[in-house]
Amino acid sequence: MDYLVAGNVMVDIVRFADGSGSDRKNMGGPSVFAYSGVKLWTDSSMLVCKVGEDFYEYFDEWLEKNNVVREGIKVVCDYCNHSFLVYKEDGTYMGDPERFTKERHRSDWIQDFGYMKTTPEDIGEFSSKYNIKGVYLAQNNDYVWWRKFSEIKKRDGFKFMWEIEAPCCEPNQMEANLNALKSTDIFSINVQEACSLFEVDTEEECIEKLKQLPVDVTIFRVGKKGLYSIAGNEVFFLPSAPADRVVDPTGCGNTSTGSAMYAYSEGHDPLMIGIMANVASAQNIRQFGVIPDFDAVREFAYKQAKELYDNYKK
Protein backbone atom coordinates (compact mmCIF):
# COMPACT_ATOMS: atom_id res chain seq x y z
CA MET A 1 0.00 0.00 0.00
CA ASP A 2 1.54 3.30 -1.11
CA TYR A 3 -1.03 6.03 -0.50
CA LEU A 4 -3.47 7.05 2.22
CA VAL A 5 -6.26 9.48 1.47
CA ALA A 6 -7.90 10.59 4.69
CA GLY A 7 -10.77 12.79 5.79
CA ASN A 8 -14.49 13.29 5.66
CA VAL A 9 -16.98 11.66 3.36
CA MET A 10 -20.15 13.39 2.18
CA VAL A 11 -23.22 12.42 0.26
CA ASP A 12 -24.08 15.34 -2.02
CA ILE A 13 -27.05 16.66 -3.92
CA VAL A 14 -26.06 19.47 -6.29
CA ARG A 15 -28.20 22.32 -7.63
CA PHE A 16 -26.73 24.79 -10.14
CA ALA A 17 -27.50 28.49 -10.48
CA ASP A 18 -29.79 27.83 -13.47
CA GLY A 19 -31.90 25.40 -11.42
CA SER A 20 -30.53 22.22 -12.97
CA GLY A 21 -28.67 19.64 -10.92
CA SER A 22 -28.54 16.07 -9.74
CA ASP A 23 -31.75 14.33 -8.74
CA ARG A 24 -30.08 11.70 -6.63
CA LYS A 25 -27.49 11.65 -3.90
CA ASN A 26 -23.91 11.27 -5.07
CA MET A 27 -20.73 10.11 -3.42
CA GLY A 28 -18.54 12.98 -2.35
CA GLY A 29 -16.58 14.67 0.39
CA PRO A 30 -12.94 15.76 0.30
CA SER A 31 -11.44 12.36 1.01
CA VAL A 32 -13.50 10.48 -1.58
CA PHE A 33 -12.80 13.01 -4.31
CA ALA A 34 -9.10 13.15 -3.41
CA TYR A 35 -9.01 9.37 -3.32
CA SER A 36 -10.39 9.30 -6.86
CA GLY A 37 -7.54 11.62 -7.87
CA VAL A 38 -5.05 9.07 -6.60
CA LYS A 39 -6.92 5.94 -7.65
CA LEU A 40 -6.99 7.26 -11.21
CA TRP A 41 -3.27 6.52 -11.37
CA THR A 42 -2.72 3.66 -8.96
CA ASP A 43 -4.64 0.93 -7.15
CA SER A 44 -2.13 0.99 -4.32
CA SER A 45 -4.15 3.49 -2.31
CA MET A 46 -6.69 3.41 0.47
CA LEU A 47 -9.34 5.61 2.04
CA VAL A 48 -9.00 6.39 5.73
CA CYS A 49 -12.30 7.77 6.91
CA LYS A 50 -15.04 7.60 9.52
CA VAL A 51 -18.48 7.16 8.05
CA GLY A 52 -22.12 6.66 8.87
CA GLU A 53 -23.79 3.26 8.59
CA ASP A 54 -25.57 4.43 5.42
CA PHE A 55 -22.20 4.77 3.67
CA TYR A 56 -22.52 1.40 1.98
CA GLU A 57 -25.99 2.25 0.67
CA TYR A 58 -24.39 4.90 -1.52
CA PHE A 59 -20.85 3.62 -1.95
CA ASP A 60 -20.92 -0.18 -1.99
CA GLU A 61 -21.37 -0.69 -5.72
CA TRP A 62 -18.56 1.75 -6.47
CA LEU A 63 -16.27 0.18 -3.86
CA GLU A 64 -16.94 -3.27 -5.31
CA LYS A 65 -16.55 -2.31 -8.94
CA ASN A 66 -13.24 -0.57 -8.34
CA ASN A 67 -11.81 -2.99 -5.77
CA VAL A 68 -11.44 -0.19 -3.25
CA VAL A 69 -9.60 -1.32 -0.12
CA ARG A 70 -12.06 -1.11 2.79
CA GLU A 71 -9.64 -1.56 5.67
CA GLY A 72 -9.49 2.14 6.56
CA ILE A 73 -13.25 2.78 6.47
CA LYS A 74 -14.79 2.82 9.95
CA VAL A 75 -18.50 3.08 10.67
CA VAL A 76 -18.85 5.33 13.73
CA CYS A 77 -22.42 6.63 13.59
CA ASP A 78 -25.74 6.17 11.84
CA TYR A 79 -25.45 8.59 8.94
CA CYS A 80 -22.80 10.09 6.70
CA ASN A 81 -23.00 13.83 6.29
CA HIS A 82 -25.56 14.61 3.62
CA SER A 83 -25.02 17.95 1.97
CA PHE A 84 -27.20 19.96 -0.38
CA LEU A 85 -24.95 22.20 -2.43
CA VAL A 86 -26.33 25.23 -4.22
CA TYR A 87 -24.03 26.84 -6.77
CA LYS A 88 -23.96 30.60 -7.32
CA GLU A 89 -23.37 32.34 -10.63
CA ASP A 90 -19.68 32.87 -9.79
CA GLY A 91 -19.11 29.13 -9.42
CA THR A 92 -18.83 29.13 -5.64
CA TYR A 93 -21.40 27.20 -3.65
CA MET A 94 -23.10 27.09 -0.29
CA GLY A 95 -25.29 24.66 1.63
CA ASP A 96 -29.04 24.90 1.10
CA PRO A 97 -30.22 25.94 4.58
CA GLU A 98 -33.80 24.85 3.93
CA ARG A 99 -32.84 21.31 2.99
CA PHE A 100 -30.27 21.12 5.75
CA THR A 101 -33.07 21.84 8.18
CA LYS A 102 -35.71 19.62 6.61
CA GLU A 103 -33.58 16.65 5.68
CA ARG A 104 -31.01 16.62 8.43
CA HIS A 105 -30.18 13.34 9.98
CA ARG A 106 -29.10 14.80 13.28
CA SER A 107 -29.85 18.02 15.10
CA ASP A 108 -26.44 19.42 14.27
CA TRP A 109 -24.77 18.15 11.13
CA ILE A 110 -21.64 20.26 11.67
CA GLN A 111 -21.16 18.47 14.97
CA ASP A 112 -21.35 15.19 13.05
CA PHE A 113 -18.70 16.51 10.70
CA GLY A 114 -16.47 17.00 13.74
CA TYR A 115 -17.32 13.56 15.14
CA MET A 116 -16.18 11.95 11.91
CA LYS A 117 -13.02 14.02 11.44
CA THR A 118 -9.74 12.20 11.00
CA THR A 119 -7.33 12.16 13.93
CA PRO A 120 -3.56 11.85 13.53
CA GLU A 121 -3.89 8.45 15.17
CA ASP A 122 -6.25 7.35 12.39
CA ILE A 123 -3.50 8.05 9.87
CA GLY A 124 -0.78 6.62 12.09
CA GLU A 125 -2.61 3.30 12.37
CA PHE A 126 -2.01 2.67 8.66
CA SER A 127 1.17 4.66 8.02
CA SER A 128 2.86 2.48 10.64
CA LYS A 129 1.48 -0.70 9.10
CA TYR A 130 2.34 -0.01 5.48
CA ASN A 131 5.32 1.59 3.81
CA ILE A 132 3.34 4.68 2.82
CA LYS A 133 4.73 7.12 0.25
CA GLY A 134 2.14 9.87 0.51
CA VAL A 135 -0.88 11.04 2.52
CA TYR A 136 -3.65 13.52 1.65
CA LEU A 137 -5.89 15.32 4.13
CA ALA A 138 -8.09 18.42 4.14
CA GLN A 139 -7.58 19.71 7.66
CA ASN A 140 -7.66 22.77 9.90
CA ASN A 141 -4.61 24.29 11.61
CA ASP A 142 -5.15 23.16 15.21
CA TYR A 143 -1.73 23.11 16.94
CA VAL A 144 -2.40 19.96 18.97
CA TRP A 145 -3.48 18.06 15.86
CA TRP A 146 -0.35 19.10 13.97
CA ARG A 147 1.99 18.33 16.87
CA LYS A 148 0.70 14.78 17.03
CA PHE A 149 0.70 14.45 13.26
CA SER A 150 4.29 15.71 12.90
CA GLU A 151 5.45 12.98 15.28
CA ILE A 152 3.70 10.32 13.18
CA LYS A 153 5.08 11.80 9.98
CA LYS A 154 8.61 11.78 11.36
CA ARG A 155 8.18 8.22 12.54
CA ASP A 156 6.78 6.86 9.27
CA GLY A 157 8.49 9.13 6.76
CA PHE A 158 5.77 9.78 4.17
CA LYS A 159 5.13 12.90 2.09
CA PHE A 160 2.11 14.99 3.05
CA MET A 161 -0.37 17.04 1.06
CA TRP A 162 -2.33 19.55 3.12
CA GLU A 163 -5.49 20.93 1.55
CA ILE A 164 -6.30 23.88 3.74
CA GLU A 165 -9.86 24.17 5.10
CA ALA A 166 -11.72 27.40 4.38
CA PRO A 167 -12.07 28.57 8.04
CA CYS A 168 -8.24 28.67 8.25
CA CYS A 169 -8.09 31.21 5.45
CA GLU A 170 -8.69 34.29 7.58
CA PRO A 171 -5.67 36.64 7.84
CA ASN A 172 -5.34 36.06 11.59
CA GLN A 173 -4.76 32.34 10.94
CA MET A 174 -1.38 32.80 9.25
CA GLU A 175 0.75 31.94 12.26
CA ALA A 176 -1.11 28.67 12.85
CA ASN A 177 -0.96 27.91 9.12
CA LEU A 178 2.81 28.41 9.07
CA ASN A 179 3.05 25.97 11.97
CA ALA A 180 1.05 23.41 9.98
CA LEU A 181 3.17 23.99 6.89
CA LYS A 182 6.25 22.80 8.82
CA SER A 183 4.84 19.29 8.42
CA THR A 184 3.58 19.82 4.87
CA ASP A 185 5.46 18.93 1.69
CA ILE A 186 2.85 19.95 -0.84
CA PHE A 187 0.04 22.43 -0.24
CA SER A 188 -3.28 23.15 -1.94
CA ILE A 189 -5.42 26.28 -1.77
CA ASN A 190 -7.99 27.94 -4.05
CA VAL A 191 -8.14 31.55 -5.18
CA GLN A 192 -10.94 32.66 -2.85
CA GLU A 193 -9.10 31.17 0.12
CA ALA A 194 -5.75 32.68 -0.86
CA CYS A 195 -7.20 36.16 -1.42
CA SER A 196 -8.81 36.01 2.01
CA LEU A 197 -5.76 34.61 3.77
CA PHE A 198 -3.29 37.09 2.29
CA GLU A 199 -5.74 40.01 2.08
CA VAL A 200 -5.05 40.56 -1.60
CA ASP A 201 -7.25 40.87 -4.68
CA THR A 202 -5.43 39.28 -7.61
CA GLU A 203 -3.98 35.92 -8.57
CA GLU A 204 -0.61 37.56 -9.14
CA GLU A 205 -0.53 38.90 -5.60
CA CYS A 206 -1.53 35.48 -4.26
CA ILE A 207 1.25 33.83 -6.24
CA GLU A 208 3.85 36.21 -4.79
CA LYS A 209 2.71 35.23 -1.31
CA LEU A 210 2.49 31.51 -2.10
CA LYS A 211 6.04 31.48 -3.49
CA GLN A 212 7.25 32.36 -0.02
CA LEU A 213 5.64 29.41 1.75
CA PRO A 214 8.03 26.79 3.17
CA VAL A 215 6.78 23.87 1.06
CA ASP A 216 8.14 22.10 -2.01
CA VAL A 217 5.08 22.67 -4.19
CA THR A 218 1.81 24.58 -3.93
CA ILE A 219 -1.21 23.80 -6.08
CA PHE A 220 -3.04 27.11 -6.47
CA ARG A 221 -6.47 26.39 -7.91
CA VAL A 222 -8.18 29.13 -9.89
CA GLY A 223 -11.53 27.53 -10.69
CA LYS A 224 -12.51 26.59 -14.23
CA LYS A 225 -9.44 28.39 -15.60
CA GLY A 226 -7.12 25.73 -14.17
CA LEU A 227 -4.32 25.96 -11.65
CA TYR A 228 -0.83 27.18 -10.94
CA SER A 229 1.89 24.78 -9.84
CA ILE A 230 4.31 26.78 -7.73
CA ALA A 231 7.71 25.51 -6.63
CA GLY A 232 9.84 28.27 -5.16
CA ASN A 233 10.27 30.83 -7.91
CA GLU A 234 9.07 28.43 -10.60
CA VAL A 235 5.43 29.10 -11.47
CA PHE A 236 3.51 27.15 -14.11
CA PHE A 237 0.04 28.20 -15.16
CA LEU A 238 -1.80 25.14 -16.42
CA PRO A 239 -5.20 25.65 -18.01
CA SER A 240 -7.83 23.05 -17.25
CA ALA A 241 -7.36 19.82 -19.17
CA PRO A 242 -9.97 19.25 -21.86
CA ALA A 243 -12.92 17.01 -21.00
CA ASP A 244 -15.39 15.45 -23.42
CA ARG A 245 -18.29 16.68 -21.28
CA VAL A 246 -18.78 19.05 -18.37
CA VAL A 247 -21.42 17.94 -15.86
CA ASP A 248 -20.51 18.86 -12.29
CA PRO A 249 -17.44 20.64 -10.88
CA THR A 250 -18.12 19.51 -7.30
CA GLY A 251 -14.98 17.99 -5.86
CA CYS A 252 -12.65 19.03 -8.67
CA GLY A 253 -10.42 20.84 -6.16
CA ASN A 254 -10.16 17.78 -3.92
CA THR A 255 -9.66 15.46 -6.89
CA SER A 256 -6.87 17.56 -8.39
CA THR A 257 -5.27 17.93 -4.97
CA GLY A 258 -5.25 14.17 -4.37
CA SER A 259 -3.79 13.65 -7.81
CA ALA A 260 -1.08 16.26 -7.18
CA MET A 261 -0.15 14.46 -3.97
CA TYR A 262 0.32 11.26 -5.93
CA ALA A 263 2.36 12.93 -8.67
CA TYR A 264 4.57 14.73 -6.17
CA SER A 265 5.18 11.60 -4.09
CA GLU A 266 6.10 9.68 -7.25
CA GLY A 267 8.83 12.24 -7.90
CA HIS A 268 7.32 14.10 -10.85
CA ASP A 269 8.38 17.68 -11.53
CA PRO A 270 6.10 20.64 -10.67
CA LEU A 271 4.89 20.88 -14.29
CA MET A 272 3.78 17.26 -14.37
CA ILE A 273 2.28 17.56 -10.88
CA GLY A 274 0.03 20.35 -12.12
CA ILE A 275 -0.84 18.50 -15.32
CA MET A 276 -1.80 15.31 -13.52
CA ALA A 277 -3.91 17.38 -11.12
CA ASN A 278 -5.75 18.92 -14.07
CA VAL A 279 -6.20 15.57 -15.84
CA ALA A 280 -7.83 14.11 -12.72
CA SER A 281 -10.05 17.14 -12.41
CA ALA A 282 -11.13 16.73 -16.05
CA GLN A 283 -12.23 13.20 -15.23
CA ASN A 284 -14.13 14.34 -12.15
CA ILE A 285 -16.12 17.00 -13.99
CA ARG A 286 -17.59 14.46 -16.43
CA GLN A 287 -20.30 13.26 -14.04
CA PHE A 288 -22.05 13.93 -10.73
CA GLY A 289 -20.08 12.39 -7.90
CA VAL A 290 -16.76 10.63 -8.27
CA ILE A 291 -15.11 8.92 -11.24
CA PRO A 292 -17.24 5.78 -11.63
CA ASP A 293 -14.79 3.33 -13.20
CA PHE A 294 -11.04 3.87 -12.88
CA ASP A 295 -9.97 1.02 -15.14
CA ALA A 296 -12.03 2.53 -17.93
CA VAL A 297 -10.22 5.88 -17.89
CA ARG A 298 -6.75 5.20 -16.48
CA GLU A 299 -5.04 4.58 -19.83
CA PHE A 300 -6.61 7.70 -21.30
CA ALA A 301 -5.53 9.74 -18.28
CA TYR A 302 -1.91 8.65 -18.57
CA LYS A 303 -1.96 9.37 -22.29
CA GLN A 304 -3.54 12.78 -21.83
CA ALA A 305 -1.04 13.70 -19.12
CA LYS A 306 1.89 12.73 -21.34
CA GLU A 307 0.51 14.68 -24.31
CA LEU A 308 -0.13 17.78 -22.25
CA TYR A 309 3.32 17.55 -20.68
CA ASP A 310 4.97 17.19 -24.08
CA ASN A 311 2.97 20.15 -25.40
CA TYR A 312 3.87 22.38 -22.46
CA LYS A 313 7.53 21.42 -22.80
CA LYS A 314 7.65 22.51 -26.43
Partner: peptide, 12 residues
Protein backbone atom coordinates in the same frame (compact mmCIF):
# COMPACT_ATOMS: atom_id res chain seq x y z
CA UNK B 1 -15.38 27.59 18.62
CA UNK B 2 -18.06 26.06 16.42
CA UNK B 3 -20.00 22.84 16.46
CA UNK B 4 -17.28 21.01 14.56
CA UNK B 5 -14.96 21.49 17.53
CA UNK B 6 -17.60 20.01 19.80
CA UNK B 7 -18.21 17.08 17.46
CA UNK B 8 -14.49 16.39 17.21
CA UNK B 9 -14.23 16.30 20.99
CA UNK B 10 -17.15 13.93 21.49
CA UNK B 11 -16.24 10.70 23.23
CA UNK B 12 -16.13 7.63 20.99
Amino acid sequence: FGSENMGFLKTH
